[in-house]
C-alpha cells in the first residue's frame, strides 16, 4: 500500500469525527441566520432588543471574569506550593486530580449539601446560636461563583503547575542571591516564565465558565440565568431551536473574542521564550 494512502487511512477515523463537529458548527451558525430559508438576522435583533437578555449577557461575562480571576488568585499560589513541595508531591497531586476527575454534577451537588438551608454551614451556625434562621448561601451569585471556582480551578492549577515544574528552582535562587527582593524576582523571573501556563489556565477557565450550565443551575437556580442556562431552557422547555442556535452563536463569539487574542499572544510568547533559550 502506498504511503499517502496509509496516512489517509490512519487519519480517517479522527478526521470523520472532527469533520462532523466542524460541519455542525457551520450549520449552527447558518441556522441562526435563516428564517424559512431566507437570510435573516431577526433572532439577533430580538436578543439585543430584550433588556433581560442584555442583562443576562452582562451577568455571564461578569461571572466568567470573576471566576477566572479568583481561580487565578488561588490557583497560582497553590501551583507554586505544589511545584516547590519537597515531601510527597504525589499526594498533593492526588488532592488536585481526583476532584478534577469527579463529575461536575457531583461536585456542584456537594456544594448544595454544604450551602443549603440544612447543610453543613447552616447547621453549624444555627447550632452555635449566631443566627436564628439559616443564611441564604446559594441561589445567588455567591453560590454560583463559589461553585464555578471550585469546579474549574483545577484546570488553572494544572496548567500553571505544568509550567512551574519546568522552571528550575536555581533560577529563582540566582535572582535572589544577586540581591533581588522576592517581589522583584517574582515579577522578573517567575511571572514571565509561567505566563504561558497562566494564559492556558485563563483560557480554559473562562471558556468553561461562560458555557457552564450545571453549576449555575444547581447553585443559582432558574431565575438568575446565564447564557448557558438560558440556552438550556430554550432547548429543553421552549423547544425554540433557532433561538437556542442564535444564543449559542452569541456564546461562541463572546468566548472566542477573548480566547483567540490570548492564544495568539501565547504563541508569540512561546516563540520569544524559545528564541531566548537559543541566545
Amino acid at each position: 500500500m502506498p504511503k499517502p494512502l496509509r496516512t489517509a487511512l490512519l487519519l480517517a477515523p479522527s478526521a470523520i469525527l472532527m469533520g462532523v463537529f466542524l460541519i455542525g458548527l457551520v450549520r449552527l451558525v447558518s441556522s441562526s441566520l435563516m428564517i424559512d430559508g431566507q437570510f435573516d438576522i431577526t433572532h439577533y435583533v430580538d436578543i439585543l432588543n430584550r433588556p433581560d437578555y442584555v442583562q443576562m449577557l452582562g451577568r455571564t461575562l461578569r461571572t466568567a471574569a470573576l471566576t477566572t480571576l479568583f481561580s487565578l488568585l488561588i490557583g497560582f499560589p497553590t501551583a507554586y506550593y505544589v511545584a516547590r513541595y519537597k515531601g510527597n508531591r504525589n499526594f498533593l497531586l492526588l488532592l488536585i486530580i481526583f476532584p478534577w476527575l469527579v463529575s461536575i454534577v457531583v461536585r456542584s451537588y456537594g456544594w448544595m449539601v454544604i450551602l443549603g438551608p440544612r447543610g453543613l454551614i447552616n447547621s453549624f451556625i444555627t447550632w452555635t446560636g449566631l443566627v436564628e434562621r439559616p443564611l441564604r448561601l446559594m441561589y445567588n451569585d455567591f453560590g454560583v461563583i463559589l461553585g464555578l471556582v471550585h469546579v474549574l480551578c483545577p484546570f488553572m492549577i494544572i496548567a500553571i503547575l505544568s509550567v512551574l515544574m519546568q522552571i528550575p528552582r536555581s533560577l529563582e535562587e540566582a535572582s535572589m542571591s544577586l540581591g533581588g527582593r522576592p517581589a522583584y524576582s517574582f515579577r522578573t523571573v517567575l511571572l514571565p516564565l509561567s505566563l504561558p501556563g497562566i494564559l492556558t489556565g485563563i483560557t480554559l477557565v473562562y471558556l468553561m465558565a461562560t458555557g457552564a450550565i450545571v453549576t449555575p443551575l444547581l447553585l443559582g437556580g432558574l431565575r438568575n440565568t446565564m447564557l448557558g442556562t438560558e440556552i438550556f431552557q430554550e432547548v429543553m422547555h421552549f423547544f425554540n431551536y433557532p433561538k437556542a442556535a442564535a444564543l449559542a452563536t452569541v456564546l461562541l463569539v463572546t468566548a472566542l473574542v477573548v480566547v483567540i487574542p490570548i492564544q495568539i499572544f501565547e504563541r508569540w510568547l512561546a516563540r520569544r521564550l524559545r528564541e531566548g533559550e537559543s541566545h
Binding site: F21, G24, R27, L251, A255
Partner: peptide, 12 residues
C-alpha cells in the same frame, strides 16, 4: 476551545 453549552447545540 468551545464552550460546552455551544457544543451542546452544535450536537443537537
Amino acid at each position: 476551545i468551545f464552550p460546552h453549552a455551544a457544543i451542546g447545540v452544535i450536537m443537537i
